[in-house]
Write a protein that binds this DNA or RNA. Structure first.
Lengths: 181, 181
DNA sequence: AAAAGTGTTCAACAAGTGTTGACTTGATAC
DNA sequence: GTATCAAGTCAACACTTGTTGAACACTTTT
């Protein structure tokens, strides 16, 4: 690999970390470039624009496949494991946080919603077998993350304890148990 | 006439509408002033700063009192009614949307979290009788709003139909039914 | 009539944004 | 040796942001 690939990757990883952690409009190109230790102009050179860089980070979103989760229980436990082991600084650049922080952005919101639809929603519907339950499931996941990490509500158990996991499991199961009229 | 709003009130109401709908950092003072039909400089004049104007809009957050909701059922139905009758443009300036859009803002996030704690969380705990269930309840409400209005997920029923209300009722009840280990 | 006070307008500021183009650098190929 | 070409640097652009202070118009007070 050439040096080009190195700085390009540096910009990409730092861009992902900052965009996914603090939100597209709250991060400037100069901050990303400084974190990568390179010049700002290289963003335009390699990615065309700020939106181009963000779009490139979106490709790192893991695409869920139906084969990843044999059934709903495995899916639930994967989510629970993700939450329990997630870092607990306020700007955690996880995929969930990325959705929460960028879904409504005027510049990249549409991109984010599209990525969610393509990479997650369809796969969730395949595993869960129903579009409504899949949406409620996603709502439960994001609501839990929002309450804990953004509003920083108290009332939840310590993230490394059994109670925290039980609470998350409870709301996820409730979403999966919904019966259309 | 008697409802003749002075300039301060005009700025306040337009500021609330835009801040609560699109988020603090996505709205400029010039846009607010233009919507109110006055000059930008009047914001500094009457509210000191942009943050001062936002802070003033926060005082319009309805403080929930324990007397507002005799029991959990009344609380649930109030929330359901709020969702069913909420306007459906993308920038609805409801109190829920205000939380979703501004809770993580670097400038006003702390203000928002504090307002939530003072005006809602304590009252919810009083009605629900448990801090954990109150937090899960709030998470369910915000997750539902986020999925529908921000991610614009399909899979939920039409907002004016019975199924939509049933879905919301289901996840709210699940939060209230949580039993700590 | 003069003075003081009030609400408003206007132009400008300093700081920040994403983006661009000209330039230097360094290695490779002719 | 020289030309070539990509990689990186640097300064500046045009634009937007929140904020400020001087000036204006108008009413009220002295």
């Amino acid at each position: 690999m050439s040096t080009t690939q190195n700085t390009r990757d540096l910009l990409l990883s730092q861009g992902q970390r900052l965009f996914w952690g603090r939100g597209y409009s709250n991060v400037g190109l100069r901050e990303i470039a400084a974190a990568a230790g390179v010049d700002v102009a290289l963003v335009s050179r390699y990615f065309g624009s700020k939106q181009g860089l963000f779009s490139a980070t979106l490709e790192a979103l893991d695409a869920l496949g139906p084969s990843d989760f044999p059934d709903e229980d495995a899916l639930t436990e994967t989510i629970v494991h993700l939450f329990v082991t997630a870092p607990r600084d306020g700007d955690e650049p996880s995929a969930f946080n990325m959705m929460l922080v960028n879904a409504r952005d005027p510049d990249v919101g549409e991109m984010v919603r599209k990525a969610h639809q393509e990479k997650w929603q369809n796969a969730l519907e395949a595993v869960i077998g129903d579009s409504t339950r899949a949406t409620l499931f996603m709502a439960a996941v994001l609501g839990f993350a929002l309450a804990e990490k953004h509003l920083r509500l108290s009332g939840l158990g310590a993230p490394d304890g059994a109670e925290y996991a039980a609470q998350l499991r409870h709301v996820l199961r409730a979403a999966l148990d919904y019966e259309p009229a």
